[in-house]
Structures are given as C-alpha cells and as structure tokens.
Nucleic acid binder design. Structure first.
Length: 415
RNA sequence: CGGGGAGUGGCGCAGUCUGGUAGCGCACGCGGUUUGGGACCGCGGGGUCGCAGGUUCAAAUCCUGUCUCCCCGACCA
C-alpha cells in the first residue's frame, strides 16, 4: 500500500491525557483513536495488527480441533440467572440495558453461560462429544476504572474458547493440549521468552487455574518466578501454591507482568448449574466437563507494543506487523520514482507486504515515521542508490543501514 | 467507589493568582527557497476558553453546580 492511499496521520506529541506508553505510541503512530476512557477505535494500521494476531490465534486453535463461531453481544437475562451471575453484586462489570418493551438485556462481558445454554440444543449424547468452540468477540466490561491504554479497556477484543467433554480425563487432556497451543501462539507473537504459565486462583472445582503472564512493567499483576524450574505463581495464590509445590518463597523472583491468557477448568460446575447433560453409552444422564480459555487479543497488542518499543517508536514482531517493509523514496525525480515503484511491484509480486512512502516530504520526516510505525524492515530508494543499482536496507532494531543488490535485499526480506 | 491532578483551535502549551471580549509552537492552506534524520522565509484560515447557572458595566479569569479525562488505591470471573 502507498501512504498516499492510507488513512493515517502521525503525531509528534501524544495527547497529554495518555500516560500509558502503548497508547501514546499507538495514537502517535496512527494505529488507534481514543473514543473515550477505555474505548479505542482501531484505525487501518491498528486493525491490521489485530487481524494478524487473530490469524495466529485462529491457526493454533484450529490446529487443536476447535471451531470458530461468533456469539451475540446482546445477552439474555434468563440465561445468566441460574448461575447467579446476572446479579450485580456477583458480577460488577455488567453493562445492562433495556429493550423498548422493557425487557432487560446485558452486553456480553463473557460468553460462558450463553454458550452452555446454546449447547443444550445440540449436545445430547456421548457421541456428540468432545466439542470445542471459540470466537473473537468484543467484550464489554463496565470497569470501575479503565487504565493502561488498550491493556485494560471497557471494550476489548477477546478470543474465548470453550471445550465440552464426557469425562474429566478427556477435559484434562484437552486442557493440556490448549496450554501447548497457547505456548505456540506466544512464541509466534514473539513474547515466549517472557511469558510464563502461571498458577492462579480458580473456581471452586479446581485447585488452580492457569494464567499466561508476560513480564511487562505496565502490567497489573505480580508473579513469583523460578526461572530454573520454570515455575510461576500469581501473588494471589502464593501462600497456597508454595505449600502445594513444596518450594521456598526465597527461591522465587518477584516480577510485574501482564496477563495475556487465562484458562479455567470448570469441572462439572456449569453443566450442573445450567442443566446441560448428555446420555452415556449405558443410557445414563451425565454431567459435562467444561473448560474455558481466553486470550485478550487487543491486550496482547498493547503488551507487544509496550515491550518492544524503543525511544523512536513501535517495533513490531514480523508475525503481526501491518507491513513487513517500509519503503522510503527520497527525492521526486522520475528516475527515483520509477525505481521505487518498480521495487514496490517486485516485492508485492513476491508476496511481501510493503508500505510505500510515496509522499514528497523530506527524508528526516520519512525516517522518523518509519521508526515510529515500527515495521521490521526499511528500504530506501534515492538518487544515490539508483546510481549504483543498490537498495539501502535497515532493520528497525539496528542503527546502521547497508547497501544491497536486489537479490540480496529479497533474501534479507524473506529470511 | 476513596484520594490526587487536569479540561483554552486537530495536537502540545501560556494566559487564570492581580476580571477589561485570546496568544505561542506543531499541524493545515498559498507563494518561494530547500531536500539523507522531523528545513527556512513570507502571507493566510481556524478557538468564545468542557457545559450550565450566578456575580459584575465587563468573566478564560471570581462563585456554585455539573460533565469529562488522567494518575494512585480498591476491584478484576
């Protein structure tokens, strides 16, 4: 895409009321627009990142046999009453509204109850199990206080998955598979080195649930870490956990983290509360074992933005960058324009995504934008480079540029 | 929800204490000179000062109320 066609605008200053680094950079670089506290619009560049993160997650969820669907944002009060969670004293993040005839409805902050309710219509026999469903949904949570830019909003995109099983063993097995799938997701997103599977507080039917926590100063959680044994424990459950695991608190390192995923083993709690049962092979009615697995898509984007950014701007991992290459044309002579256009066409034909800065701005501004926008590769075409038929290449994270032939450049961009 | 801070062109700010109908930088438009790390000169457009009410001859400025935003805390299924 050419910048002349892209809806975007970079800013030198971030709005003064944004303190969170992720929001400052994402707003300055034109990825997001703040509608109100805790609610951000995703502009074309930001949407590309969101979609790229979703693509990675989608591929890994599909790989463990889950099915994508999409539930509704409007939710039925009657579905939530049996579990007691319609009550605002139990769930304090509800957004509730009324239909014109006075019927109360809720805006979805979770889809656990609705999806269990839905399955009553489809699951009757052990032959229908197991089943795993997931969606990417905009969750609405009426948080007392929004904070940390896109890392804790009142409206955010979440991947939530739910699995349904005939036995505890089958659920446990799938739960373990999901942990591995989540690890692959974080590896592909470039944050696996700093992401830990963490023991956390869970429902009444599990000793612990698991969180995926990424080391991040802007995070809201604190975990205790044993890098050698690869053990991580949320501060919330530290006392119980060290007893359980037989380790000493002194062995653990205390770090600030952001929760990028959370999985729960519900056991048969939901099925019993809501009356979802199946018939086993001897004709007896049985409870289902249910698991629930979430990844905050937009929060992950904020964490990645926050973690990798440097003083010049964003730095995107290759897997989720909106474009692989920021192509800078310097000068507007026909020869330079033709060379830049030609390179642009060549790279596109090769399947490499390119943002081609075809504006007639000065070089300094273009370089500053290239850094701020954070694409992994920068290529410059100028009068100097076409003289010797080379291209100037620089990686976002390196200081120095090198001159490469077209073939070498193509190799650099595809490795 | 408790505590603290802040709302002045699109963004960043000054002006408020000591009332006298709004200013700077960036951005934007036009002309010119420039062109490898956010250029320079000239000209120009744009705000009624979050909102409402009050005091006053006169309110961005004083008073009351209200809305919004940010930070800390509490909360986080």
């Amino acid at each position: 895409m050419k910048t002349s066609q892209l809806f975007t605008k970079t800013l030198k200053n971030a709005p003064a009321d944004e303190v969170a680094l992720n929001a400052q950079l994402l707003i300055r670089a034109g990825y997001v627009y703040k509608e109100m506290a805790g609610a951000y619009a995703y502009l074309p560049l930001g949407l590309m990142v969101v979609e790229n993160i979703k693509r990675v997650v989608r591929e890994e969820m599909n790989a463990i046999g889950s099915n994508e669907l999409i539930m509704t944002s409007l939710q039925n009060k009657a579905v939530w009453e049996p579990t007691g969670r319609w009550d605002e004293k139990v769930v304090d993040v509800w957004f509730k509204t009324k239909l014109q005839d006075g019927t109360e409805v809720g805006l979805g902050w979770s889809h656990e109850e609705p999806i269990v309710e839905m399955l009553k219509q489809y699951v009757h026999s052990y032959k229908d199990l197991p089943i795993s469903l997931y969606q990417f949904q905009t969750k609405m949570r009426n948080e007392l206080r929004a904070k940390s830019g896109i890392m804790r909003g009142r409206e955010f995109v979440m991947k939530d998955m739910y699995s349904f099983h005939a036995s505890k063993d089958d659920l446990d097995n799938y739960y373990t598979q999901t942990i591995e799938a989540y690890k692959r997701v974080y590896a592909r997103l470039g944050i696996s080195d700093d992401t830990y599977v963490t023991f956390a507080s869970g429902g009444a039917f599990t000793k612990f649930s698991h969180e995926f926590q990424t080391i991040c100063d802007a995070g809201e959680d604190v975990i205790y870490l044993h890098r050698g044994k690869n053990i991580a424990i949320n501060e919330e459950v530290i006392d119980d956990a060290i007893k359980e695991l037989g380790i000493a608190r002194e062995e653990l390192e205390r770090v600030k983290t952001a929760e990028v995923g959370n999985i729960f083993n519900f056991g048969t709690q939901k099925t019993d509360e809501m009356g979802l049962y199946y018939t086993d092979d001897s004709g007896k009615q049985q409870s289902l074992h249910i698991g629930s697995y979430g990844i905050g898509i937009t929060r992950v984007m904020g964490v990645v933005a926050e973690k990798f950014a440097d003083e010049r701007g964003l730095v995107w991992p290759s897997a989720i960058t909106p474009f692989q290459v920021y192509l800078v044309q310097i000068g507007t002579s026909p020869a330079v324009t033709q060379a830049a256009q030609s390179l642009y066409d060549t790279l596109l034909a090769q399947g490499i995504t390119v943002l081609y800065d075809d504006s007639d701005r000065r070089p300094g501004e273009k370089f500053a934008d290239a850094d701020l926008l954070g694409m992994p590769h920068r290529v410059v075409v100028s009068a100097k480079t076409i003289e010797t038929s080379v291209f100037e290449y620089k990686n976002r994270t390196s200081q120095d540029a090198t001159l490469l032939s077209l073939a070498d450049l193509q190799m650099q961009l595809t490795k």
